[in-house]
Computed example of a mutant assay.
Amino acid sequence: MTTPPFPTFAVAARSHHRMHGRLIHRATLRAAAAALLFGMALPLLAQHPAPAHTTDIHMNTQSALSARQQAILPIAAFTAAGDLHRLEPALRAALDAGLTINEIKEILGQLYAYAGFPRALNALGTFMTVVEDRKAQGVHDAQGKAPTALPAPDQMLAVGTANQTRLSGQPVAGPLFAFSPQIDRYLKEHLFGAIFARDNLDWGDRELATVAALSAMTGTESQVQAHMRISRNVALSEAQLEHVVAVLRDVVSAETADRADQARRHTLAN
C-alpha cells in the first residue's frame, strides 16, 4: 500500500497546539553553532542576493508547513537514502503539490553536496522519467523559473565568502581550514558562491531539503542540529520545524523523524 504523500491537516493542528506560545526571540546564531557548522566543513546554505523573506526570522509565526513545503521533505529524504522505489511516487506528489520542475531539479541537484553524486544522479534520472511519463499522459507540469545570472567565475570566491559570513554572523575560520585550505575554498567558491547563489529556490526550501536529507542518513546527528538552527535563521518557525518532524514520521520513517526531533529538541534547549 502506498504511503500517503502528505500528513493530514490534523498533524498541522496538533503541531499548532503543542507549539502555541513557545515561539521565542533568538537574537543571533551563537559562536559555538558557527564553529559546528563551518569548523566541520559542512555544506550549508548561502544565496545571492538574499531573498526578502530572510531578513527577519521573528516575523514568521506560521504554525504549519504548506503542502508544497511538506512535499520537499520526502523527496530529499528518499534521495539521500537511495530509495528510488519510494522516491518516484513522492516526486509525482511533489508536482501535484505545486513544486515546479525546475524547483525539484534544484533540490535534487543540491543534494549531491550531502548525499553524493551517485544518489543525486539516480534521483534526477528517476525524476526525468516521471516528467516524461506525466507529459505522455497529458499532464502539463509548470517548468518554473530558471535562476538569474550567476556571479562571474572570478567573483565566486568573494560572493561565497560574503554569503558564508552573513549566514554565520561572523567570518569563518578554524584549524580544520588551516589543515585543509582546499576544502575552505571549495565551500566558499563552489557551494556558497555557485550552488546556493542560484535564486530559483529560496533559503527556507533549501534548508527543508537539507534537514530531511541529513535526517535520513546515519552518523549526521550534529549536522542535523546545525541545520535545525540555520532553519530558524532562514525564516522557518519553531512550530514549522515540529511539523517537519511530523511529516517525516508520517511519510518517511520513524528513525528519520527521531533523528530530526532529537536535533530540534537540542536546538530548543541551547
Rank of each mutant, 00 (worst) to 15 (best):
I57D: 09
Y112V: 05
V252L: 06
S237R: 03
M128H: 10
L124P: 03
Q164A: 12
L248R: 10
Q262G: 09
F6N: 11
K105E: 15
R265G: 11
R166M: 05
R229S: 05
A64E: 08
R166C: 03
A254I: 10
P4W: 01
A136I: 06
T161F: 00
I72M: 09
L167E: 00
K188Y: 07
K105S: 13
L23Q: 00
S63A: 13
G138Q: 00
A10G: 07
A46W: 13
A77K: 09
A64V: 04
F177M: 13
T55Q: 06
F78T: 05
L36F: 01
A50N: 06
Q182D: 15
Y186E: 07
L208V: 08
A90Y: 04
T28K: 07
L45I: 09
W203P: 05
H266I: 03
Q70C: 11
L37C: 08
A235P: 04
R26N: 05
V244A: 13
P175E: 05
R206T: 14
A123R: 08
N102Y: 07
I195R: 11
M228N: 05
S222L: 08
M40W: 13
R206M: 14
L23T: 02
D261W: 14
T79W: 02
S168E: 00
L191H: 14
L201H: 04
H140E: 13
T61Y: 10
T28C: 01
A212E: 12
A10E: 05
Q62G: 11
A257R: 04
P51A: 02
V211T: 03
L201W: 00
F6A: 13
A120M: 02
T165W: 06
P89K: 01
Q69A: 09
S215D: 14
R264P: 05
H25G: 08
E103Q: 14
